[in-house]
């Protein structure tokens, strides 16, 4: 049952992101060709979307975008808790909300003038009244966040930003494990996220943004975001 709903969730994600992609999905497509456009020195055109910048600044904006998404999600969860939420679960969700807000506000302060604006989110696919829907979405966001930071590590130039990413990713992994255990106790590090070598997942920025794009209305310009 659980497996089924996760599968549906994932397939829903894929289908919706593909549709968005096919329509206005400039962001991720641009990512794929960014490497071929080194000669393009023009200032970013606002019509191309919210510009992430390049190098480490772009990676920081990428993290900032993901943290905005998570913070907005948990803010909504805390504002309108699902029916039958326990005191304990409510307390955990409040903590997680505060952690994600701390991450979001940290990036906003650290990036300063080069920070992207506040993103407009689309949570129409989430049923905030349903424990199952909220937990499935939380799990998807936390596992995605872990894989995003893990995958971005190799793209970071400055060691101090790598350490900062490291300080945050383990907190996201703690969240992910808890959410997974709330769905099914003991699934904190099951074989859907940990491989035969005992390694967690890494995702490239392109993969992450494709998945996340379902929840983001704002058009993103990630043409200079480092990638692989």
């Amino acid at each position: 049952m659980e497996e089924m709903s996760n599968k549906q969730e994932n397939e829903g994600l894929k289908r919706r992101s593909f549709l968005k992609y096919a329509g206005a999905g400039v962001a991720v497509t641009a990512l794929a060709v960014a490497g071929c456009k080194k000669s393009d020195n023009h200032m970013p055109n606002p019509e191309d979307g919210e510009y992430f910048g390049s190098g480490d600044i772009a990676i920081l904006n990428y993290a900032y975008a993901l943290e905005q998404l998570e913070a907005a999600f948990y803010t909504k969860v805390a504002e309108s808790p699902y029916s039958g939420i326990s005191t304990q679960e409510n307390s955990f969700f409040t903590d997680i909300r505060d952690h994600e807000i701390a991450h979001r506000e940290f990036f906003k302060a650290a990036i300063g003038g080069s920070a992207i604006k506040g993103l407009e989110v689309d949570f129409s696919s989430i049923n905030f009244g349903s424990r199952e829907s909220v937990l499935a979405t939380a799990k998807a966001f936390e596992d995605l966040g872990v894989s995003a930071y893990n995958g971005a590590g190799r793209l970071i130039q400055d060691g101090k930003y790598l350490v900062l990413a490291g300080k945050i990713v383990s907190v996201e992994a703690r969240h992910a494990a808890l959410i997974r255990d709330l769905i099914s106790n003991g699934s904190f590090a099951d074989n859907t996220v940990v491989d035969m070598n005992g390694l967690d997942k890494s995702r490239s920025p392109g993969e992450v943004l494709e998945i996340a794009s379902v929840y983001i209305k704002t058009k993103l310009n990630v043409k200079d975001l480092p990638h692989y």
Binding site: V169, S170, A173, R174, A189, V194, S202
Partner: peptide, 12 residues
């Protein structure tokens, strides 16, 4: 990094 986040899942 992929080991690091698994250890954090364990810790949690």
């Amino acid at each position: 990094l992929n080991i690091h986040s698994v250890e954090a899942r364990h810790a949690s």
